[in-house]
Design a protein around this nucleic acid. Structure first.
Lengths: 214, 214
DNA sequence: TCCCCATTCAAACGCTTGTTTGAATTATCC
DNA sequence: GGATAATTCAAACAAGCGTTTGAATGGGGA
């Protein structure tokens, strides 16, 4: 089975995408790093776009599946469904991926970038991957936070994902005058994130004012 | 003065960058849209990279200057410096830019992308632009939120910028089953953002636990 | 009117890109 | 072991890229 070559291509692509971006990474760089022939990409995946999608599917699908699984467990546990618990069901699997090794860390760095990507094809693909998960989490949060409207929750989930992505991408680490570079403890970051986002999600809704069109 | 051509080039570049991304936008597309000659870019800016930087400087510099100005006014007003007020000093100028027209909206859509950009040159440039502003806001928040450590505040500012960027980029709008597409009221979004982020920044710090390395 | 400087222009440069092709090689099964 | 399919390979393709060049063009001061 040429699965071996496929895996090597995916690994190489993931690594180079994280390092240099999607567009800037050439198939020649990928195949060289993977010790494969240039034509191997088209043989195994069909095109560069499909390779890109495959890179995401490989890790994002299990990731989102675990998020949903955890949410289901939480809802079926019978206990009260807190905001923290819902948030943890969403965040923890990705943190776990990061702790798993360099590959996981690299991959999470890609996730935020992919969502802001200008390429309509990739963005549509990401939406397709995230939509069911976000809808599901939204439905749960609507019940957990009955004082908020679904639109409120939609946007707050949007903010949540943004904060998460920036944290993973390590954006803006450099500006800090003193050293935080060795973030080291991912668990600490997770707690910091959960603290921030829980408070944000729990914030009281806007008072109705002026004319609300939405 | 060829200023006219320069401006048209900047406008065209900004528009195409927002639409298709930095790398995907060719100088030929830019100069065609700007009704300029291909060589005009190198004549007026020197290279594509410098054109890119110029696109950002044109709007980001005034934007960050106004942020700092508002913060200064706030601090000199004598009244109590609340988290909301600090946050507003940071957010409002960008919202104002968005309300100003399509160009402003397009530009803010670029901002998030630029921070997650893999190109080290552009990322360094963005850090250079943001560093003084974020440091300044951090210093103020350290006093406003004395129960938080500077590192806490650093990360929460990071989350803040992430949420802001995602909101501006309109990332993940598509997943919502019902229609929110016509966000319409930017003011409403601003309030929603401020509500969320204020609560996040105000969240109590993590309890010291286990061994804290950072 | 002439000159000079800033600007514009068409054309070409060398290089890299994703993709295709058809033959060579390797593995699989009867 | 020979046929059949799966996989790899080197080579070439056309197209697009950022950049450079050197001549043409334009308007303003002497």
């Amino acid at each position: 089975m040429g699965d071996d070559t496929s895996q090597r291509l995916l690994d190489a692509a993931e690594m180079l995408f994280a390092e240099h971006g999607f567009v800037q990474t050439s198939l020649r760089a990928i195949t060289t790093l993977a010790h494969a022939n240039l034509a191997a990409v088209h043989y195994h995946f069909g095109s560069k776009d499909e390779l890109t999608r495959a890179v995401f599917v490989r890790r994002l699908k299990p990731l989102n599946e675990e998020r949903l699984a955890r949410l289901t467990v939480l809802e079926n546990s019978g206990g009260p469904v807190t905001v923290e618990a819902v948030l943890t069901a969403f965040i923890e699997p990705s943190l776990q991926l990061r702790r798993a090794g360099v590959q996981g860390e690299r991959f999470t760095r890609l996730l935020g970038r992919a969502q802001l990507e200008p390429s309509e094809a990739l963005r549509d693909f990401m939406n397709e991957q995230y939509a069911p998960v976000l809808e599901r989490f939204q439905r749960t949060l609507v019940q957990t936070l009955p004082e908020l409207s679904p639109v409120d929750i939609h946007w707050r989930l949007c903010f949540t994902l943004g904060a998460l992505s920036f944290a993973y991408a390590g954006a803006l680490w450099a500006w800090l005058p003193f050293k935080v570079r060795e973030v080291g403890d991912e668990r600490w970051l997770q707690q910091q994130l959960a603290r921030f986002l829980t408070a944000g999600l729990r914030a009281p809704p806007l008072e109705k004012e002026v004319d609300m069109a939405v």
